[in-house]
Amino acid sequence: MNPKLRKFLEFCKDFSSNKVALVAFFIFLLILFVAIFAPLVSPTDPYDLNTVSIMNSRLPPFSEDFSGNYFLLGTDGAGRDMVSAIFYGLRVSLGVGVLSGIFALIIGSFFGISAAFFGGRYESLIMRIVDIQLSFPSILVALIILAAFGKGVEKTIIALILVQWAYYARTARSSALVEINKEYVDAARCLAFGNTRIMFKHILPNCMAPLIVVGTLQTAHAISLEATLSFLGLGLPITEPSLGLLIGNGFEYMYSGDFWISIFPGVALLITVASINLVGDHLRDMFNPRLH
């Protein structure tokens, strides 16, 4: 059998030894599916003004309107079906979270690995910036960026990248420091490969495991942070209704007892974040050599 395939199968077996993490992983896959195919799986298009009727506003869960449309989770203040709004919201939330995570991973591992590779003043400078940034709570960093530059999709993503990159940089540097002393790096140097090639073709792939662990946990964190920022009115604009915005919209109806408008998007957010966290937690245990 192909050794790569065997390694992968071994990994799968290892991973499924924890039933909770396995269930969490499948739940996450389901959420991902719903988010990607939201326009196909949603009962209605919640942002199509032709189908949304204000007559249906704030219908409780399990209700039906006069033309026979069924609303499993009720409708919001504008008469949108909550199920569809949540599906579309997941799309935005996951999109922003994953996108910012990928960018942060790229930027963070670039600086982390190059810091470990070149050492000296460059390394001290990078790691000092990382330390200073990590001494601020993530919400504060995001708040500073968004308070100073205003809200918007790109600005939210930039804020989330800034919040996360330092974690990746720190992780990448510490694993690269171990890798750099290994023989394959010496061999690559003897072959006179360029620094860039050694750093990103040889060292980086061997640092991926811890980076992926940090990546899952950070992505969960980013999704949660984006929801918080959007709820506060600092994150995404109304044109990109993420779960945080949906919860925020429902908040004003809370006091009149219309709980479903903000509760259900919150449940969706909680399930998403918790499932990613559970998978990440298990991955961390798997990759942690101290536990074996």
Binding site: G266, A274, N277
Partner: peptide, 23 residues
């Protein structure tokens, strides 16, 4: 405690208000 990490603070606040203040 994992759930506590995953729960968005603002949403829990809304639930607190709904249960203890409104209902």
């Amino acid at each position: 405690s994992i759930l506590g990490f995953s729960m968005p603070t603002f949403w829990v606040g809304i639930i607190f208000i709904m249960i203890f203040a409104v209902q």
